[in-house]
Simulated assay, not measured.
Amino acid sequence: MKSAPSAAAASAEPLAEHVYRELRKAIVRCEFEPGTRLRVEELTRRLGASSSPVREALNRLAEQGMVRTLENRGFRVAQLTAEGVEDLVRVRLLVECEALRDSIAHGDDAWEAGVVAAAHSLGLVERRLGEGPRALDDDWSARHRAFHLSLYAGCTSEILRGLVDVLFDRAEHYRRWTAKHRQAPRRKHDEHQKLMAVALARDADKASELLRRHIARTSQLVTSVLNGDPPEWVQ
């Protein structure tokens, strides 16, 4: 992560928003280990910003559950726990399945084209990486995120889309940490292709069921790694 915002980034968004997004990205990518103390003075140097936007970013991330506030002791990166995964998955299923159903019901031609383009882009980087590790590749992660969010882009609720965005990054934090500690990779290409196909076929029931399975598999893998017991199907 750059120590100071670039001219392009500064002109594209307010400094406070840039600081928030950079810090959120750093946490998601596990540049700070779970439980790490986040010192405002160190972050101001790292991000090239004053303490005000850094504190604002930390408070926003605390509201989203990615950071924990300590009474009179500042901030820490949230711990990753099996209980936290279970709770997160429960909310993701409620929010993302509803957002997907709404997208399927209201998505137009542009939505379909966006889903196809995002799936194709993800497939390209997967072919480039071959059998190598993907989960910790930043390009793959960005395209993977773009594909999932493209599925919800047709949703008519701005609130739902905002919740999906935050929940996906919270899940991504778990996924990236898990990828650093598991023994073998999980291949999700077929799951993504099937999800795309049923969404474009406007089969909301089947798409929701595939999404539930997709999220559940991730939850199972994360929980198993947290418990030190990788499941057989990822070995």
Rank of each mutant, 00 (worst) to 15 (best):
residue 179 A to M: 07
residue 174 Y to V: 01
residue 181 H to T: 10
residue 185 P to Y: 05
residue 181 H to P: 08
residue 167 L to Y: 12
residue 172 E to F: 02
residue 172 E to P: 03
residue 186 R to G: 05
residue 151 L to I: 10
residue 171 A to N: 10
residue 153 A to T: 08
residue 185 P to M: 13
residue 187 R to A: 08
residue 185 P to T: 02
residue 187 R to C: 04
residue 168 F to S: 00
residue 148 H to V: 11
residue 158 E to N: 15
residue 158 E to W: 12
residue 167 L to T: 07
residue 155 C to L: 07
residue 156 T to Q: 14
residue 156 T to N: 05
residue 160 L to Q: 11
residue 147 F to H: 01
residue 147 F to K: 00
residue 143 R to D: 02
residue 177 W to P: 09
residue 143 R to K: 13
residue 184 A to V: 10
residue 169 D to H: 13
residue 174 Y to M: 01
residue 169 D to M: 05
residue 178 T to K: 01
residue 169 D to G: 06
residue 167 L to G: 02
residue 180 K to S: 15
residue 169 D to L: 13
residue 188 K to R: 13
residue 164 V to A: 03
residue 181 H to Y: 12
residue 147 F to D: 03
residue 186 R to W: 13
residue 183 Q to L: 10
residue 157 S to K: 10
residue 144 H to Q: 14
residue 185 P to L: 09
residue 157 S to V: 09
residue 164 V to P: 01
residue 182 R to T: 05
residue 153 A to Q: 15
residue 147 F to E: 02
residue 183 Q to V: 12
residue 184 A to R: 15
residue 152 Y to G: 04
residue 158 E to F: 04
residue 182 R to V: 03
residue 163 L to T: 04
residue 158 E to L: 13
residue 159 I to E: 14
residue 158 E to P: 09
residue 160 L to G: 05
residue 168 F to R: 03
residue 168 F to A: 04
residue 154 G to F: 11
residue 157 S to G: 08
residue 184 A to E: 15
residue 168 F to E: 06
residue 163 L to R: 06
residue 176 R to F: 01
residue 176 R to P: 02
residue 158 E to R: 08
residue 188 K to T: 15
residue 142 A to Y: 00
residue 179 A to L: 05
residue 155 C to Y: 06
residue 178 T to E: 07
residue 176 R to I: 01
residue 167 L to R: 05
residue 153 A to M: 12
residue 170 R to V: 02
residue 154 G to W: 05
residue 177 W to C: 06
residue 157 S to T: 11
residue 174 Y to I: 01
residue 178 T to D: 02
residue 182 R to S: 10
residue 183 Q to Y: 04
residue 178 T to Q: 02
residue 150 S to D: 08
residue 157 S to D: 15
residue 179 A to T: 01
residue 152 Y to V: 03
residue 150 S to L: 06
residue 188 K to P: 06
residue 142 A to H: 03
residue 174 Y to H: 10
residue 166 V to A: 13
residue 172 E to N: 08
residue 143 R to E: 05
residue 186 R to F: 14
residue 153 A to R: 10
residue 188 K to I: 14
residue 160 L to R: 14
residue 170 R to Q: 12
residue 161 R to W: 06
residue 145 R to A: 00
residue 165 D to E: 15
residue 150 S to F: 03
residue 144 H to E: 07
residue 168 F to L: 13
residue 181 H to L: 11
residue 142 A to W: 01
residue 162 G to K: 07
residue 187 R to E: 10
residue 180 K to D: 02
